[in-house]
Amino acid sequence: MSHYYYFKKYELLQIGSVSSIVLKRSSESDDLVYMVPVEGYFEKLLEAHNQTGHGRRDKMLYYMKQQWRIPRSAYAVTCQECDLETHINCGTLADQDTFFCSLCSKEKHIHDVQEDCHSRQKLAVNKMVTFSTEEFPELAAGDCITLAVSTVDRASIDFSRILGVVLDKQNEVYQIGTKAGIMKGWSSRPEIQKSGASMITLLDVRRDNFLTLREAAVAQSKCGGQGYKKCNCKVTKEQCSTKRCSCFKANMKCGSRCHNSNPCANKDC
Rank of each mutant, 00 (worst) to 15 (best):
R214I: 10
Y75D: 06
Q114A: 15
N126F: 03
C269Y: 15
S256W: 05
M199P: 07
A219G: 01
V18Y: 08
I182R: 11
L167D: 02
H87D: 04
Y6R: 08
A140S: 14
M252G: 05
N171D: 05
L147N: 05
L12A: 05
K234F: 06
M199V: 11
D95N: 13
C254K: 07
A74K: 00
A180W: 11
K122M: 08
M35F: 04
R189W: 13
L61V: 04
Q175S: 11
N266D: 03
S241G: 15
K249T: 06
T92R: 15
I70G: 01
A250V: 06
C223G: 10
H3Y: 07
R72L: 13
I182W: 03
L23T: 07
I70T: 05
V152K: 11
G91E: 00
V125T: 08
E172G: 08
G91W: 01
C90T: 09
Q239C: 14
M1A: 11
E47V: 08
G255P: 07
D58F: 03
Q96L: 09
K194D: 07
Q175E: 07
S261Q: 13
G16T: 06
V125I: 12
D97V: 15
S221R: 01
T151A: 11
R207N: 10
G225L: 10
R207Q: 13
S20D: 01
K44C: 13
T133K: 14
S132D: 15
C144V: 03
S188M: 12
Q80D: 04
M183G: 02
F136K: 01
C233Y: 07
E11P: 04
D268W: 00
A148Q: 05
A180H: 03
K9T: 08
D116N: 10
D31A: 14
E28K: 12
E238D: 12
K122F: 13
I182Y: 00
S105D: 09
A217Y: 03
K249D: 12
H118Y: 11
F159S: 14
C79W: 07
S187F: 15
G181L: 10
D208S: 12
S105T: 11
E81V: 15
K237N: 04
G164A: 09
V33Y: 02
W68P: 01
K108C: 12
R57Y: 12
C258M: 12
F99E: 01
L167Y: 02
L103M: 11
A155C: 09
G142V: 10
N171H: 15
Y41D: 08
H87K: 04
L123H: 14
L167A: 01
Q67S: 04
V36C: 11
V22K: 11
K127L: 11
Q66W: 08
D112I: 00
V218L: 05
D112R: 01
E191F: 14
M128E: 12
V218K: 06
D83I: 01
C269L: 12
Q121G: 03
C264G: 00
G185L: 07
I200K: 00
Y41V: 06
F210H: 12
M252P: 01
V33T: 07
Q239Y: 10
G196D: 14
C269R: 15
E11F: 05
I192L: 08
T201L: 05
C231H: 06
Q66C: 03
Q193M: 10
F7P: 02
D143E: 02
R56F: 08
A74F: 02
K24G: 03
L103N: 08
A219K: 10
Y174P: 04
N232Y: 15
H87Q: 04
T98K: 08
Q80C: 09
Q121M: 02
